[in-house]
C-alpha cells in the first residue's frame, strides 16, 4: 500500500508538485515582502512622529500664546508688571531671572567642570577614573526635585545664616558690588538658584569635556611633553585649543539645561515678579513662574501669558541647543 502511494505521487506529478511548490514559494515571498514593507513603514512612521512631536510642541505653544501676544504685542517682552488682578502681564522679570540664574550657574560650572575634566583625563590614577567619573555623572542622575527640596531645607538656610550676611557686609562700601549684594539675607533668591543650577549642570559640562579631551590624539600630547611642556601647559595650549569647539558645545548643552530647569529653581527662587539688581533678592524664572502659577491661573489671558512664557523659553533653549549640537557635530566629524 505504502509503496504504491509513493510511486503514485512520483508518477502523477513531478510537474504538479513543482507547480504547487512554486505557488507556495511565491506566496511566502509575497508575505515576506508585505511584512518587510509593513515593518519599514512602521519604523519610518515612528521617525516622522519624532518630527511631528517637535512641530506639535511649537504649534501648540504658539496657538496657546496667541491671546496674550494679541493683547500685549511685543511689549510683553519688556514689561515688568505681572498682575493677575488687573490682567496685566509682562515677561521681563522671568526672562531676567532666567538669564541671571543661568549666568551665575555657568560662571561657576564652566571653570569647575573644565578642571574636573582636566583632572579626570590627565591627572587621575587610572583605577580611580571610572569610579570618580561615574560619581560625577550620578549628580546628573539625581532628579531635580531632590535638588529643590535639598536647596530649600538645607542650602538656603545655610546661605542665609553664614554666607549672605558676610557678602552683604564685605561689599557694603564697594560701589556697584553693593548693589549686586544688597538687601536682607532671605536665603532663597537668585544667587541660591544659580548655585544649585551650577551643581546640576556641572556633570554635563564635565562628561562632555572629558569625552572630547579623551579624543585628542596621544601623539599631539606626547609631542608637547617631548618639548618640555608641563601638564598644565599641555592642557592649556594643546588640548584646549584642539577641542575648543566641542568644549563650547558642552557649555551650550549645560546652558540649555540651566535655562530650562524647573523644579530645583522653583523651590528656592522665591517667585517674585520683580527685576532687582541684587542677586540676593528673590526673583522668578520662566519655568518657575509656569510651575508655580499654571494650575492656579484663572482666565484665558493669565493662562495664555504663561504659555507665552513657555514659548519664549522654548525658543531660547532651541537656539542654544541647536548651536550646541552643531558644534558637537563639527568636533565629531573632525575626530572621526
Amino acid at each position: 500500500m505504502r509503496e504504491g502511494k509513493v510511486s503514485e505521487v512520483t508518477l502523477n506529478g513531478a510537474g504538479l508538485q513543482q507547480r504547487a511548490e512554486a505557488t507556495s514559494r511565491a506566496g511566502v515571498l509575497r508575505r515576506l515582502r508585505t511584512t518587510d514593507f509593513v515593518f519599514y513603514s512602521m519604523t519610518r512612521g515612528a521617525a516622522i512622529l519624532v518630527l511631528l512631536l517637535l512641530s506639535g510642541v511649537i504649534i501648540s505653544l504658539i496657538h496657546g500664546s496667541l491671546p496674550a501676544l494679541d493683547a500685549f504685542g511685543l511689549s510683553f517682552l519688556s514689561t515688568e508688571v505681572w498682575n493677575p488682578v488687573t490682567e496685566k502681564f509682562g515677561a521681563l522679570a522671568p526672562i531676567y531671572g532666567t538669564l541671571v540664574t543661568s549666568f551665575i550657574a555657568m560662571l561657576i560650572a564652566v571653570p569647575v567642570g573644565l578642571m574636573v575634566a582636566f583632572f579626570l583625563t590627565e591627572l587621575c590614577p587610572m583605577s580611580l577614573r571610572r569610579p570618580i567619573g561615574i560619581a560625577i555623572e550620578l549628580l546628573a542622575g539625581i532628579p531635580s526635585i531632590i535638588y529643590g527640596i535639598w536647596g530649600l531645607f538645607v542650602f538656603a538656610p545655610f546661605l542665609q545664616k553664614y554666607v549672605q550676611p558676610v557678602l552683604i557686609d564685605a561689599f557694603a562700601d564697594v560701589p556697584l558690588l553693593n548693589a549686586l549684594f544688597a538687601g536682607p539675607p532671605y536665603g532663597i533668591g537668585m544667587l541660591t538658584a544659580g548655585l544649585i543650577l551650577a551643581v546640576m549642570v556641572l556633570p554635563f559640562i564635565t562628561s562632555i569635556s572629558r569625552d572630547v579631551f579623551d579624543a585628542v590624539p596621544v601623539v599631539l600630547k606626547e609631542a608637547a611633553y617631548g618639548v618640555g611642556c608641563t601638564t598644565w601647559e599641555v592642557f592649556r595650549h594643546v588640548i584646549l585649543p584642539h577641542t575648543r569647539v566641542g568644549v563650547i558645545g558642552g557649555f551650550m548643552l549645560g546652558l540649555g539645561r540651566a535655562l530650562g530647569e524647573t523644579m530645583a529653581v522653583t523651590f528656592v527662587i522665591g517667585n517674585a515678579h520683580k527685576v532687582s539688581s541684587s542677586i540676593l533678592a528673590p526673583g522668578t524664572t520662566i519655568s518657575a513662574s509656569i510651575a508655580n502659577e499654571f494650575t492656579e491661573a484663572v482666565g484665558d489671558l493669565y493662562t495664555s501669558s504663561l504659555i507665552a512664557l513657555g514659548l519664549i523659553l522654548f525658543v531660547i533653549t532651541f537656539i542654544v541647543l541647536a548651536i550646541a549640537r552643531y558644534m558637537l557635530l563639527r568636533i565629531q566629524q573632525r575626530v572621526g
Binding site: V50, L51, S60, T262, G310, L313
Partner: peptide, 27 residues
C-alpha cells in the same frame, strides 16, 4: 530625513520638560 530626525531628537532630548507639560496640556 534621518539627519533631520537625529537633530530634532537631540533637541527633544534636552528640551525643558515643563514645555512638554504645556504641550500635553494644550492637546
Amino acid at each position: 530625513l534621518s539627519s533631520i530626525v537625529r537633530f530634532i531628537n537631540d533637541i527633544l532630548l534636552s528640551a525643558p520638560s515643563i514645555v512638554v507639560g504645556l504641550f500635553i496640556y494644550e492637546i
